[in-house]
């Protein structure tokens, strides 16, 4: 019993990291129809910056903020100066974002080398707690709580605030939203920055359990894609549900079928694709 609970909690905590990544991917696609292939880089660079800040200052909170805000700025620059020219042109967008994926990946290699880095856990969560009959690392429980808090915040942002209403209006009909005086291009930058922020947050928070290593950008990008394919692009609910599903599938797959680990994630994805091409919560 304890075994199942521990593995389930491992899967859920990893799923929360995937949710952070996929929420941004999904928000960006929902508003501006950009499939951001650089999203994995945001995760990786956030992680690296976090590690660097924690090494120099020793503060986990500072590392999280520094990583997330720095990458949000990178996101705004990318959106303003590059992606904006190719509104609704998916081919140049794909080339551009894939190019940045390569550029960032190689720059990270130049700056941080090819050895994997591990982020130390924050002191507050550097121990295990007793849950019924077994001990479990409190940091993973913290990630689960944090992920749920972010989900609640994003839901409130989208459904309960003026900015959220503007975003929803622009998703529904961009031209009418512009005509009504909504500054859609500012919203584009804001949402892109928020997406980058969330991905980098995932990178820093995931540092202590997944590690920060060259190639992580591709790995998480692909898992993020599976999440949004299952959940549906553009849906927050889909990102949360898909993140948890992929986290659990990935974890149990690695435990039971180590040789075909990826298959346990991709096979259900193919089934869902055959059944609902736009994902469980997507609509198109």
């Amino acid at each position: 019993m304890a075994f199942w609970l521990i593995q389930a909690l491992n899967g859920i905590s990893f799923g929360m990291l995937l949710f952070l990544l996929a929420a941004g991917l999904s928000l960006i696609y929902g508003l501006m129809k950009v499939l951001n292939l650089t999203h994995g880089s945001f995760y990786l660079l956030g992680g690296y910056i976090g590690v660097a800040v924690v090494r120099t200052t020793g503060s986990f909170v500072l590392a999280t903020l520094a990583g997330a805000f720095a990458i949000a700025v990178v996101g705004v620059v990318m959106e303003r100066f590059f992606l904006r020219r190719f509104h609704l042109q998916e081919l140049p967008q794909a080339l551009l974002t894939f190019g940045f994926l390569f550029i960032f990946s190689d720059l990270a290699m130049v700056i941080w080398g090819s050895d994997p880095e591990t982020m130390p856990k924050p002191a507050l969560f550097d121990h295990s707690v007793q849950l019924g009959g077994f001990y479990y690392p409190s940091y993973r429980l913290f990630i689960i709580a944090f992920g749920l808090a972010v989900a609640a915040f994003l839901w409130w942002l989208q459904e309960g605030t003026r900015v959220g209403a503007m975003v929803r209006a622009s998703v529904d009909n961009e031209e009418v939203a512009r005509a009504l005086g909504i500054n859609v291009s500012l919203l584009f930058s804001l949402v892109f920055a928020l997406g980058a922020f969330l991905a980098a947050l995932g990178g820093v928070m995931g540092g202590p359990i997944v590690g920060v290593y060259p190639g992580a950008d591709f790995d998480v990008l692909l898992l993020g894609f599976v999440v949004v394919i299952i959940g549906g692009l553009g849906s927050l609910k889909g990102a949360l549900f898909g993140g948890l599903a992929v986290g659990l599938l990935d974890n149990f797959g690695k435990v039971f079928f180590p040789e075909l680990a990826l298959f346990t994630v991709f096979a259900p994805m193919a089934l869902i694709l055959a059944w609902r091409p736009s994902g469980l919560f997507g609509h198109e």
């Binding site: 590059f82 080339l95 551009l96 894939f98 190019g99 940045f100 994926l101 390569f102 550029i103 960032f104 990946s105 190689d106 720059l107 290699m109 130049v110």
Partner: peptide
Amino acid sequence: LLILGIVYV
């Protein structure tokens, strides 16, 4: 890879 990335852009 860096140069290839720049070529993409």
